[in-house]
Amino acid sequence: MEKPKIALYWCSSCGGCEESVLDLAEDILKIIELAEIVFWPVAIDTKYQDVEKMGDGEIAVSLINGSIRMDEQEYMAGLLRRKSRIVIAHGSCAHLGGVYGLANLYRSEDCLNRAYKEVPSVRNPKGILPKVKLREGEVELELSGFHKAVRSLNQVIEVDYYIPGCPPNPKYISEAVLSVLQNRLLPKGNVFSERRALCSTCSRIGTKPERAVIKEIKRLHVWDWDPEKCFLAQDMICLGPATRGGCMERCIKANMPCRGCYGPTENVIDQGGKFLSALASIIDTRDEEEIEKIANSLLDIVGLFYRYSLPTSLLGGGTK
């Protein structure tokens, strides 16, 4: 019998998600035993045209990482959707929009102008911007178009499953892929990771505040915190309560607070809104003015609460 086919693709991505696949180590052999990788631009040289030639639904499962910002990425996502029976959004960018989604706070023209016209190192007297179609003498060059906003994969195509993380824990990549290959299909929309919040497995949970304790919000550079104690108990922002577990508390182990890359917990849409509730409940005052003061000491709420999820949040949604 012919082996089922797997495809991997990257959209607007840093390459870190690709690395997370390589970190599968022995599990990759298990996968290769069960399936054939037919498309993976970074590792094997099947071309876009080869995918175009495949039959609809010919690919058993496609793993797509990266968010969608360019024409080419949208095209490839659509193509792989048609050719695949199952599509998995791989990593925070595909899952939630990811860190590049913060660009949705700005207009696309402003992004281009900043990089190509305004930064102090650039010399561009004619104000040239990269062009999508261009004639250079007799030569025609084409460059992928830049969209208005960053979108997550499910804002562009239908997605069956999700693997969270920036980058994801390899364990869940193999779990997701093997569940498809071994025909143990989970309900559509399943997120392959812990069900519970990060706090539930955090080594600092013992000191996590149960009542109001916060009198001010402290930033990373202002003091030397206790490396054993819950960050929230030390007046610092840690997204643990509103973030899905599964990363093995990567940042916490390095004595840094969580910034939420695994996205919201089960059944929550808006990670920032959720964290906001958690934080509000431990602010230790009833005085209107003091509340105001504490709230004002928290700067760049969007960059902290929605660092990886802005495009899929209620307000930061992307449009083409």
Partner: peptide
């Protein structure tokens, strides 16, 4: 509610 809404107001401002 007061605490939540105060924080939320600041956040909405950023949006």
């Amino acid at each position: 509610a007061l605490k939540k809404l105060t924080l939320l107001r600041n956040m909405l401002g950023e949006f």
